[in-house]
């Protein structure tokens, strides 16, 4: 065997091992994806108390995954503008406001997190803010699936069968609430009644936050207006 041939074999071996390494990485990623993105959220959905317990105690919930769920939902709601069937949605792509679509998903998530955290810290809740946020993001899991299914369904239903599409979307929201409710119970280690009580309080807190937000906005606007008037007065008088 001459040198050249030896080299050739070695490079071949090298290439082969590189491909294998890459392949094993891909397989590993897919396994991780399946475990984190499909199996575990599904486990939570069907065994909510056990699932959320693992989520909290064994730290099986991951922030990256949680954020990805939010991104999925945002992505799908934007995709609905382009790919929804004409029978289900008569929206036009020109009406799409990307930032608004993002805000419609993120704002409620963040608001509920903050409101719930501020209530539960007063009511001996064991959950941290990060956990609450992750839990709400994980609860978006059924919505992401039903949105995807709905996107497909919307292209094959007729007007009479539109109810199927509506049912699927409604199921997604129902399961989201179901997951989130058990999430609140597990994460804060509450009883049923106390959980319901804190949720009502959360709703009130949500309103208060919105109210304060609008108030601040209005006041800032007024201050800006005031400053602008003073500026105008001065410019008109002296310049």
């Amino acid at each position: 065997m001459n040198e050249n041939a030896k080299n050739l074999v070695s490079t071949e071996e090298k290439n082969d091992s590189q491909i294998r390494k890459f392949w094993s990485k891909v397989v590993k990623f897919l396994k991780w994806f399946k475990e984190e993105f499909i199996k575990f959220p599904l486990f939570i959905l069907f065994h909510p108390l056990k699932g959320w317990d693992e989520f909290k105690r064994e730290k099986r919930g991951k922030m990256s995954v949680a954020i990805w769920f939010v991104i999925f939902v945002i992505f799908l709601s934007i995709m609905e503008y382009q790919y929804s069937g004409f029978i289900v949605k008569q929206v036009e792509v020109t009406d799409l406001k990307m930032l608004a679509e993002i805000a419609y998903i993120i704002a409620p998530v963040v608001l509920v997190t903050v409101a719930n955290w501020s209530i539960t810290t007063l009511f001996d809740g064991k959950g941290k803010m990060k956990e609450i946020f992750m839990m709400i993001c994980y609860s978006l899991y059924p919505v992401a699936w039903t949105k995807l299914i709905g996107l497909f369904l919307s292209n094959v239903v007729s007007q009479q069968e539109k109810a199927i599409y509506t049912l699927v979307i409604a199921l997604g929201i129902f399961f989201m609430c179901y997951m989130a409710f058990f999430g609140f119970i597990s994460i804060h280690e509450y009883g049923l009644l106390k959980c319901v009580a804190t949720l009502i309080a959360t709703a009130v807190a949500l309103l208060v936050i919105c109210f304060i937000g609008i108030l601040c906005f209005d006041l800032i606007q007024k201050i800006a207006g005031f400053v602008y008037t003073i500026y105008r007065e001065i410019t008109l008088r002296y310049f």
């Binding site: 004409f86 029978i87 094959v156 007729s158 007007q159 009479q160």
Partner: peptide
């Protein structure tokens, strides 16, 4: 679809399907 008539679109789509 251009005329934005969902009812008739649905009828046509059903027959097409």
């Amino acid at each position: 679809k251009t005329g934005f008539n969902v009812e008739y679109y649905s009828k046509a789509y059903k027959l097409y399907r």
